[in-house]
Design a protein around this nucleic acid. Structure first.
Lengths: 212, 212
DNA sequence: GCAAATTAATGATTTATTCAAG
DNA sequence: CTTGAATAAATCATTAATTTGC
C-alpha cells in the first residue's frame, strides 16, 4: 500500500502537455486567480495544487532561459577560441560564468498575452484519448475573456499578483494526504546553532501610526 | 482626504519595534501559520497583511546579511591595501564584489528559536504608551508553546512553510482599501513584445497518472 | 521656512541558485 | 540527470529624509 505518499507533485502527461502548451502560447507568470483557474482545470487530470502550477512556471521559465544562456555562452566561447589569444581578456570582471543580464525572451506582462494565439492550440494530433476538449475550452476561456478579477482584489488594492503566499491554503479539496510523520523537527538540517545575530534596532520608524 | 491610498504598507513604530525584537530573538523565516499569528498580533497596532510580515523578514534578513558582507569586504580591501602589492592577486576569479557565499548568520530553522529569550523582551523603558503587554504575551506564546499546527496542514502534508503563495487572500478584515483606478495596463513598461519563445515540449513526463 | 530636487531606505517582485526526491 | 520545491540575491518602485535655492 502506498504508505509513503511521495512528498512532491508528479505531473501527469496531460497536465504537463497543457502547461507546456500554455507556456508556448506565452504564459509566463500567471497571477493568483489565473493559477487558481489553471489548477482547477488541471486537477481534472490528477492531483495538483496551486503552488505546483506556480513553481512549474517559475522553474520552466528559468530553465528555458538557462538553456538559452548556456547555448549562447557556448557559442561565444567557441568564437573566443577561434580568435587570436590577444582578444581574450576584456572580460575578467563581471560575468565569469553566467552572463548575468542577457536580453532573453522573458515575460512581458503579468497577464496573459492578449495576442491571437495559434488557434489550433493543442489540437494537432490528439496525443491522449482523454477528453481533451474539457481542459481546452477552459484554457481558451482563460486566455480570451473570462477574467472577473481586477476589481475583486479584496484586501489591499495592490493586486499582489505573485511573489509570496501562504496563510490560508487554497484548495483543501484536491490533496488529502496526511503529513508524513516527521518528528517535529525544530532544527531541520542546517542548525547553525548559535544565533550570532548582528542586528540592531537602528532607527525608529518613520511614518507614525497614521491610518493612511 | 486621503484620496491616494498609498500602495505599500507602512509599518507603525510599534509594529516595527516588535518585528525587530523578534528578529533579534532569532526569528528569520517564519512559516505560514507563524506569519498568520504575527500578523494578527501586529494588526492590533495598525493595518498589516501576512505578505507584509513575510516580506519584512525576507528583506530584513537579506539586508542584514548584506550589511555584514559589505563590512567584511571593506575590511578585506583595507587589509589588501595595507599589504605589499604582490599578494594582491589570488582572487580574480570568483567573488569580485559581493562575496557570494560567506558563512553568515542565517536562519537556522524554519521555526522560532526555542532558546530562552531575554525575559524583559521589549519592556525596557516602555517607549510607547500602548498596551504593550497585549502584543507581548501573544508573542511569547508564539515562541514557547502554543503551536497547534504541524498536524493541521490541511491540503498536502508538505508544510510548505514559505516561498510562494496567493490564491486566497487571508485577512480581508484588516485592509478595506479600494483598488487604485489603474487603467488596466496590459503591457506595463517592459513590453518586450514579440514572445520569441524557445521552448520545446522536451520529454513527456515520467510518472504516469497514478493517484499516488 | 518651504517646496522642488536628490538621495537614502525599504516595501514588493522577479530572477538566480540551491536542495533534494525520484 | 531531471525537476519539483525552497531560499537567497538582485532588482524595481515608492516613500521618507535630506539637500538646495529662493
Amino acid at each position: 500500500m502506498p504508505q509513503v505518499p511521495s512528498t512532491r507533485w508528479c505531473p501527469t502527461p496531460e497536465q504537463l502537455m497543457i502547461l507546456e502548451e500554455m507556456y508556448r502560447t506565452g504564459v509566463r507568470t500567471p497571477n493568483a486567480s489565473q493559477i487558481q483557474q489553471i489548477t482547477s482545470h488541471l486537477s481534472y487530470y490528477g492531483k495538483i495544487e496551486g503552488k505546483n502550477v506556480f513553481y512549474w512556471f517559475q522553474n520552466h521559465k528559468a530553465r528555458e532561459r538557462q538553456k538559452l544562456r548556456r547555448r549562447l555562452t557556448k557559442q561565444q566561447q567557441q568564437q573566443q577560441q577561434s580568435m587570436p589569444p590577444f582578444s581574450q581578456h576584456s572580460f575578467h570582471f563581471h560575468n565569469l560564468e553566467d552572463g548575468h543580464s542577457l536580453p532573453l525572451p522573458d515575460d512581458s506582462s503579468q497577464l496573459f498575452y492578449g495576442h491571437q494565439m495559434h488557434p489550433q492550440f493543442l489540437q494537432h494530433e490528439g496525443g491522449f484519448q482523454e477528453p481533451a476538449s474539457h481542459g481546452l475550452d477552459l484554457l481558451r476561456r482563460l486566455e480570451t475573456g473570462g477574467n472577473q478579477e481586477e476589481a475583486t482584489s479584496s484586501s489591499n488594492g495592490s493586486t499582489w499578483p505573485c511573489g509570496c503566499e501562504w496563510m490560508t491554503l487554497m484548495d483543501p479539496s484536491f490533496g488529502e494526504r496526511r503529513p508524513p510523520p516527521k518528528t517535529l523537527e525544530l532544527f531541520p538540517t542546517t542548525s547553525t546553532g548559535g544565533l550570532k545575530d548582528e542586528c540592531s534596532i537602528s532607527k525608529s520608524s518613520s511614518c507614525s501610526a497614521s491610518t493612511n
